[in-house]
Nucleic acid binder design. Structure first.
Length: 498
DNA sequence: CGGCTTTGACCAGCGC
DNA sequence: GCGCTGGTCAAAGCCG
């Protein structure tokens, strides 16, 4: 970098870092050590790289030229040469004046020749880098294709039922928002599961389940949601805090490849959270106030299903349905849907934050995925990370279209305590990290949880801490979920095509 | 009397 | 079109 303007030419004492100063000996303008803001590093840099020696002379003038030359050689940019060419007159003036006193014309010509060679080599290296980059992209695309195929095979071979297993299920119900025909989803939930094998004293990750989740809940509820979506959005946007950034993502039923792009423009995602835990009471204590507005007998389950809506805030749209598991009536299945439009009590904040974290990750999955890689290991890692303090239990991640799901199994088959020594601090952090994220509420405290001396709140706090402690992992998880969405999207498309 | 629960009716989606 | 199912509504009843 050569500064030809006199305005920036200052004394070395004032601005030695600029590399431009007025020579105290000659009184002439000299450029040296351009961009050498880190003298020590520069020294190391010279030691670590080949530096051409231009001159063997030991006087000050040649040292200036040599250091200047070293810098040009090591930039690796053709700016050097271009600079020299474009500012040849300026360069010539200064250097010629300098060399007039200190160097011979032959040496200067040799210097320029070296610079020209360096420029040619730089150009060649740039072309080489470009070629390597293209090769990398090609290989990357190929790898993406292979991983997509592998993931599809894994999911196809992992069909099972998750209903009777306890856990917290975060669903991304992606709603059709334009036409009712779009609501006719024929999709299934595919669950990837992480299980801790305590007997073998190690953690294993397996893909276990594919779960079909309540199409009726979706279809019936969606039609109303579609009609009220706009009003809700405005209403929610009017509230401060964690609902301020409420998003209404678009939804695509993923039915047609050709229509995928158009559908993506009208996609709506809806988050839902299911909690499965053992409880003797008819409803888990989750810190919120609920009003029962209906009860139905569900097919295939002798236990009635109760419907509640949140009454803590006027106009709060959060609803939940509670039903006992048919096979094991000690398991209480609670499904939450909607977003609270009011502040939550402290006991509910932790779980709301945790679920919002998971939901936010899933919502982030709506971001376009460049490669669509399904990283099953990453998802499994996510699952184990979400519930690091739960043992012999399920930490399930489901990420498939149209309802990617994260499942946190809270049922404790043994007496291993759930502990989170950092709970309070975590909660404080959550209030900042997730204040603006879409939130789904889940009860913060379970009653009658088998063999669990610690509270569920601690569990989710620890889980969230594990997630938030590693932003890279969170980002990677988002990317993974994104990939799964894209991957399942592709699967559905292929299925529809067949 | 207000809030909540109960419960039958109603509506919409879906499959046949 | 019809029946099944899930979800919601709203009137009636209950309770503190």
């Amino acid at each position: 970098m050569v500064h030809s303007s006199d305005s920036i030419c200052k004394s070395k004492d004032e601005h030695s870092s600029s590399g431009i100063f007025m020579s105290s000996l000659t009184g002439k303008r000299v450029v040296l050590d351009e961009m050498d803001f880190f003298a020590d590093h520069h020294k190391k840099y010279k030691n670590g790289h080949h530096v051409k020696q231009i001159s063997e002379r030991d006087d000050d003038g040649d040292q200036m030229v040599q250091r200047n030359m070293d810098l040009h050689v090591n930039t690796g940019l053709d700016l050097t040469m271009n600079m020299i060419n474009s500012n040849r007159s300026t360069m010539d003036d200064r250097t010629s004046q300098n060399i007039e006193d200190k160097a011979t014309p032959n040496e200067f010509a040799a210097l320029l020749g070296e610079l020209h060679q360096m420029n040619v080599e730089n150009q060649r290296l740039k072309e080489l880098i470009s070629q390597v980059n293209n090769n990398y992209k090609t290989l990357h695309m190929h790898l993406v294709t292979l991983m997509q195929r592998q993931k599809q095979q894994e999911i196809n071979g992992a069909i099972d039922n998750m209903k009777n297993k306890g856990g917290v299920v975060l669903e991304m119900d992606q709603l059709a928002s334009v036409t009712e025909t779009d609501v006719k989803s024929k999709d299934k939930i595919e669950l990837m599961e992480c299980k801790t094998d305590q007997q073998q004293n190690r953690t294993t990750t397996t893909i276990e389940n594919v779960h079909l989740l309540d199409p009726a809940w979706k279809s019936s509820h969606y039609s109303r949601e579609i009609n009220t979506r706009a009003n809700e959005s405005q209403e929610q946007a009017s509230h401060s805090g964690w609902l301020s950034d409420y998003k209404v993502p678009k939804y695509s039923p993923f039915g047609d490849v050709d229509q995928a792009s158009d559908q993506s423009m009208s996609m709506t995602k809806k988050a839902r959270v299911s909690v499965r835990t053992r409880s003797e009471s008819s409803m888990i204590s989750d810190g919120c106030q609920w009003r029962k507005y209906g009860q139905k007998m569900a097919k295939g389950n002798p236990c009635p299903r109760a419907y509640y809506r949140c009454t803590m805030g006027t106009g709060c749209t959060v609803r939940k349905k509670v039903q006992r598991c048919a096979e094991d009536r000690s398991i209480l299945m609670t499904t939450y849907e909607g977003q609270h439009n009011h502040p939550l009590p402290p006991t509910a904040t932790a779980m709301a934050s945790t679920t919002s974290a998971a939901v936010s990750m899933l919502l982030s999955g709506s971001m376009p995925s460049a490669d669509g890689i399904m990283n099953s290991n990453l998802l499994n890692k996510a699952a184990t990370t979400i519930l690091p303090y739960c043992s012999t239990n399920l930490a399930t991640l489901s990420a498939s279209a149209p309802f990617p799901t994260i499942t946190l199994d809270l049922n404790q088959s043994n007496s291993s305590p759930i502990s989170s020594p950092q709970g309070q601090l975590i909660n404080a952090d959550l209030s900042q990290n997730f204040m603006s994220l879409p939130n789904i509420f889940v009860g913060s405290k379970f009653s009658g949880l088998h063999g669990t001396p610690a509270s569920f709140q601690d569990t989710v706090s620890a889980a969230t801490a594990a997630i938030t402690a590693d932003p890279n992992f969170t980002a990677a998880l988002v990317a993974a979920v994104t990939s799964v969405i894209g991957n399942t999207h592709s699967n559905n498309n292929s299925n529809s095509n067949t």
